[in-house]
Design a protein around this nucleic acid. Structure first.
Lengths: 336, 336
DNA sequence: CTGTTAGCGCCTTCAC
DNA sequence: GTGAAGGCGCTAACAG
């Protein structure tokens, strides 16, 4: 059996209260008491039962991070940043995978929120639309990462997807491309990511007086490498094939690079490729991949700060917080 | 405030005990009671407080998965398999990042093990050697993933690294390569992975009567993409440069592909490359990457089964469980 | 500054 | 089958 506060108190010949004081660095403890208790603590190798503490305090010092898929590099990189930052703040992060399935997402969210395991939730949602989210009564604070899915009454941290996409496409235009295609996502109402990126893409084309014909946008079921091939083939099959691809994720861009290679096209001489997310992998592809790089570090800190403020009881009205991004021009769009 | 068992009992006009019975699907409950309680449950939207339940029962239904780095694709893919399998078993997985730093690894391990948060721990360790592990008194069961770090008294699930490495190198030999270099890891006593893979590599070379000279092994600080470039340059600088690279991880292999490209060498015509881990990315590189593919699915199930058995009280002596692997020959070692 | 008391929400003996 | 009490380990009141 585990050693309890009471055991320590008994050994030291003091009350549990005093032991608790020492364990929690309470201010007014006499040196003599300190010494006695510490000796007993060490001798018994006492570790507090965090469950009991959490039950008593109503707070656990743990937050949940709900991600669609941990194997998606963007999410694992984001998770890394969040775990890092949280550990500096003395917070434990419980990472959980939702599979992007709305029902599982909801289920996990409900559990996380109602079971008192966690003080708060960081939710990166793809599939879950605003309506479903609105139906969730939140006993614990929730901060959304990524796109704001509809007008949910939640804090939300992300980048300006429209502007970032416009920048990416403008970069392609500046380098002399004219038939620029977009790849990724469903453009469904619930897929806010693709809607916003498509909007930025079209805005850039329109501003430059370039065609925005429908055939230049190829949807994909998800945003993974394996989803790109079909889309690329469809685009290349057109009588006037594109001379540049703007992919809504780096993984899609990498899948596209592979398919272009199989089709015998050279990047960037025949066709340019730009991605989105700046995952580490993109620096090592051949050619290396131009990408929009959201400031993941800042997303992590901002999200955590916001969540901690809510947990502490902040009652401001929900805010949409935007963090920075960069366009990183690499070989896939620059070296001729 | 959250709604408690007592609230439900009051509304239904029964005792907390009866509510508990219904919530936990206890056998002997009258249909009338069932109905009354369920109605109250629904009306109040009751969710049990898992903290209190865990405290009471001494079990939480949660296990910890401790990984060096979540951004390493191999680990995130493994994590995915484990979360998947665990969710089928009704177990929640708490993923935590140790940064591979032995002290942080130990710290997290201690916390996980002593604080009653989790019923068990799956530990994938790189840095932590057997001696340090032996010093940890485990209040909860621990199962090791990957290499067995020394003769620790813990269960352990992994593949036969020596044999897998020998197979990989044999494959290179079979395809006509003669100067085969190895890349990765420190070969330090604590880095069991590189020791075992190096052993298999050398065994294959010796068996074929090929040179195993020291200059053909290039160490790397870690196993990431960015660690490969220096190693590759060193190998190529030698008067008799290798005609094949056996990399101890896919990430290293991918970093190597990039560096070989920069050096103007073509894969596989000038030089073959083989990796280890079979991460998804490796199917999309150009050329696609030949790799050893450990059965991650089976690692996940075996590890979970073993851990659950321990949690249930199994008292068998610690076992080393080996699961299967495959050599997947792709373009980087086959297409001329 | 320290000891006593009570209770966080739940489950599980023990009676009925 | 169901009700009443007790306690898992801890900390927050309230004395003293």
């Amino acid at each position: 059996m585990a050693v309890t506060l009471r055991d320590v108190a008994a050994l030291a010949g003091v009350s549990p209260r005093s032991v608790s004081n020492v364990v929690n660095d309470f201010r007014y403890v006499s040196p003599a008491m300190q010494a006695k208790v510490r000796a007993a603590l060490d001798e018994l190798d006492y570790k507090p039962n965090l469950l009991a503490r959490g039950l008593r305090q109503g707070r656990t010092g743990t937050i949940a991070l709900l991600l669609p898929e941990i194997t998606v590099a963007y999410f694992s990189e984001l998770a890394h940043e969040i775990v890092e930052r949280a550990s500096q703040l003395g917070i434990t992060v419980m990472i959980d995978e939702t599979s992007g399935a709305p029902n599982r997402e909801l289920a996990l969210l409900e559990v996380a929120m109602r079971s008192s395991w966690v003080d708060g939730v960081l939710l990166s949602t793809l599939g879950l639309n605003g309506a479903a989210l609105a139906g969730v009564k939140s006993d614990v604070p929730v901060v959304l990462l990524g796109e704001r899915t509809a007008k949910s009454a939640l804090d939300h941290v992300g980048i300006d997807n429209v502007r970032a996409s416009r920048d990416a496409v403008q970069h392609l235009i500046d380098s002399g491309r004219h038939r620029i295609a977009a790849i990724g996502g469903s453009h469904a109402p619930s897929d806010m990511t693709s809607r916003l990126r498509l909007k930025g893409y079209r805005a850039a084309l329109r501003a430059a007086g370039l065609p925005t014909e429908d055939y230049l946008y190829a949807r994909t079921p998800k945003y993974r490498r394996g989803d790109a091939a079909v889309a690329v083939r469809a685009l290349l099959a057109h009588p006037e094939p594109p001379d540049a691809l703007f992919c809504f994720s780096d993984e899609l861009a990498i899948g596209s690079l592979r398919e272009l290679y199989e089709q015998g096209l050279r990047v960037p001489s025949d066709i340019s490729v730009v991605g989105f997310d700046d995952i580490e992998e993109s620096r090592f592809t051949t050619p290396s991949l131009t990408s929009i790089s959201p400031d993941k570090h800042q997303i992590a800190s901002t999200a955590l700060e916001t969540l901690m403020a809510r947990i502490a009881g902040s009652d401001l009205r929900p805010r949409a917080l935007q963090v920075g991004y960069q366009l990183l021009a690499r070989e896939s769009s620059t070296r001729q």
